[in-house]
């Protein structure tokens, strides 16, 4: 029982227009049956300062990650989480968040691991909704717990592990971190805490396309033509390519994964969520420093396995 797509002209240019909704569409559909609105932010308290009426919160850090193993929650935990948020398997889920939907895209990607079918992003995210003076509330939403089936995670189609990336070398890789992280000048984002990578640089052959280039100044996604210019003309991606995107812990690259998969229609894009905090600490994996992508070092790739 999913809702009809937002028929906006801008969206119809994208490969999968049904993956985005506009603030107008959301305002008009807020009370629609079968819709659950989810806020996912970087800041764990931002939702509590005010959110879209009826929206529930999902915290990427405390609710989507396993507390012990560096991994996502399993099928049972996801089913419990969904039930607690009032989400059913056939719900239309619209996710929005701060910072151009950076964390919202991460949450959407985790929903994808569990094959939740109808999950969309609010174009422009929280900032656009607020900038347009639309209603916000601190009232806790009334959630009717739902039944959500236990669905085991299916990682393979959209998630890459270290070994997958070693085997992938030679095919397109997109590094979505800042320029200084790519060259190895620094190992964390400017103005962010040190998360501990022993080596700086990038995975050999990875092309640098910082994630935020996909967003316009108002936080909405750039148009199809603009995105094609960035990812196809400039980064050299071609139809049918098998692509892996990575960043530091897999959050920024979820945003790029969304752009490549749903807006540009690449059918085989994986997010390497181990990203630099794994690669930059792993023993004997090849690394390139500086602004050039570098070459595939066949011998060292084999040695690391």
């Amino acid at each position: 029982m999913t809702l009809a797509a937002d028929p906006q002209d801008k969206f119809s240019e994208y490969a999968h227009p049904e993956r985005l909704v506009s603030t107008d569409w959301l305002a008009a559909n807020l009370d629609a049956e079968g819709l659950v609105v989810v806020e996912s932010d970087e800041d764990v308290l931002l939702y509590e300062t005010g959110h879209i009426p009826g929206a529930v919160k999902i915290d990427w850090h405390t609710e989507l990650n396993d507390e012990v193993t560096r991994d996502y929650i399993d099928g049972e935990a996801f089913a419990r989480l969904m039930a607690a948020k009032g989400i059913s398997r056939d719900s239309t889920v619209v996710i929005y968040g701060d910072k151009s939907n950076w964390w919202a895209a991460y949450t959407l990607w985790v929903f994808t691991l569990f094959g939740h079918e109808d999950v969309r992003l609010l174009d422009g995210g929280r900032d656009k909704w607020v900038a347009e003076g639309r209603p916000m509330t601190t009232d806790k939403p009334e959630v009717t717990p739902s039944d959500y089936p236990v669905v085991e995670r299916n990682d393979a189609p959209v998630r890459a592990f270290l070994g997958d990336v070693l085997e992938h070398l030679g095919k397109p890789l997109i590094d979505v971190r800042s320029g200084d992280e790519y060259t190895g000048a620094r190992t964390t984002m400017p103005a962010y805490p040190e998360e501990g990578a022993l080596r700086g640089g990038h995975i050999p052959t990875a092309v640098s396309v910082p994630w935020a280039r996909a967003a316009a100044s108002d936080g909405t996604f750039r148009t199809r033509a603009e995105l094609d210019a960035i990812y196809r003309d400039e980064a050299g991606l071609q139809e049918g390519d098998d692509v892996v995107a990575y960043c530091r812990i897999g959050e920024r690259s979820s945003h790029t994964w969304f752009v490549l998969t749903h807006l540009l229609g690449f059918g085989n894009v994986r997010n390497y969520d181990g990203s630099w905090t794994e690669w930059g600490n792993a023993v004997r994996v090849p690394i390139v420093r500086g602004s050039e992508p570098g070459e595939v070092p066949a011998a060292s790739a084999r040695a690391a396995r």
Partner: peptide, 9 residues
């Protein structure tokens, strides 16, 4: 900024 309530806290 108000968008950073945890930091403000």
């Amino acid at each position: 900024p108000p968008e950073a309530p945890t930091t403000r806290g």
